[in-house]
């Protein structure tokens, strides 16, 4: 009667359970490696950079000598860049998202724009640099100014904002729209007064994440001509500029080994700013996400 031999089953079973346990440990370790790397990076940069990070570093220009180099021009330059990038991408990105979600018919053209955006998101940032170099710097002859850099970064992060805004507009419940139409509102009135206010937290979160990507971008700015050493601050969007990642890159490439510490200090400043931006995004998401 004993078709099933309990001993063989339990013998095999213990092996399979052991395998499962070993695999779990392996998968866990693989997950932890990323964390360890992050920890090593943070530890290394903090121990190297904190020594050089003082008021002189924050308020000084870059210099030939490591003791006197500062990141002021980089921080101000990055802020100027964002003053161009943020409005341009937010307006165009949100408008694109509204069109695709609320107005466009589900046809070939809409799908074409969607696929196009998907592919744009996969284009390497340095290719956007080539685009900015040709279109802005040479064809429109803007020269190597904040405007050219900011617009290039804006085009680069456009797909990020569009996707975030689309998702957030899509998540506005249809009942709200129908109620608004029921009260006699037109389409644009509904979009402007009902859909957009309901979608704004998601749009802002996406926008901030896109900006934090733009602030950390280096390669396209190298192409559109951010200066590595600059000793006057830009006073408008038509002035030459530098940016935080560009300064860090130039310090990394500097021949004197002491610049390693300067670069670390610069990285701390950059990461702190990114951390602030991301905390704002998380804060907005948590504060407004329960409303609907």
């Amino acid at each position: 009667m004993a078709l099933i031999n309990k001993d063989t089953v339990s013998n095999k079973m213990s092996g399979r359970i052991l395998k499962n346990k070993i695999a779990k440990v392996i998968f866990f370790i693989a997950t932890i490696i990323g964390l360890l790397f992050l920890g090593a990076l943070a530890y290394r940069i903090l121990t190297q950079g904190l020594g050089s990070l003082d008021m002189d570093f924050l308020t000084g220009f870059t210099s030939q000598s490591p003791d006197r180099a500062g990141i002021k021009a980089g921080v101000i330059g990055s802020l100027w860049l964002m003053s161009v990038t943020a409005p341009v991408t937010l307006i165009i990105g949100v408008a694109t998202a509204i069109y695709l979600e609320e107005y466009a018919k589900r046809g070939r053209f809409t799908r074409f724009i969607q696929i196009n955006l998907q592919n744009l998101a996969g284009v390497p940032s340095i290719v956007f640099g080539l685009l900015g170099l040709t279109i802005f710097v040479y064809i429109f002859k803007t020269g190597e100014i904040v405007l050219a850099g900011g617009l290039t970064l804006g085009l680069l992060v456009l797909p990020v904002i569009v996707v975030a805004a689309q998702e957030s507009i899509r998540s506005v419940p249809n009942e709200l729209r129908e109620a608004s139409y029921g009260m006699g509102a037109t389409k644009w009135q509904t979009v402007r007064r009902i859909v957009l206010p309901a979608a704004i937290p998601g749009i802002l979160t996406g926008g901030i994440l896109a900006l934090s990507r733009a602030i950390g971008e280096t390669a396209p700015l190298l192409l559109v001509g951010a200066a590595t050493a600059i000793f006057t601050l830009p006073s408008g969007i038509f002035d030459p500029y530098t940016a935080m990642p560009i300064q860090i890159y130039s310090w990394t490439k500097a021949p004197q080994p002491e610049f390693e510490y300067v670069a670390s200090a610069g990285i701390i400043v950059l990461l702190v700013i990114l951390l602030l931006l991301n905390s704002i995004a998380v804060f907005i998401r948590n504060k407004f996400s329960k409303r609907l």
């Binding site: 964390l35 990076l41 940069i45 190297q48 950390g216 860090i248 990394t252 990114l274």
Partner: peptide, 21 residues
């Protein structure tokens, strides 16, 4: 979220880390 932090670090920082660590 910690894994996502890794994705948000600027590449110039990774480059610096590769070279110096």
């Amino acid at each position: 979220p910690i894994l996502e932090v890794l994705a948000g670090i600027p590449t110039v920082v990774y480059g610096f880390f590769a070279l110096t660590f």
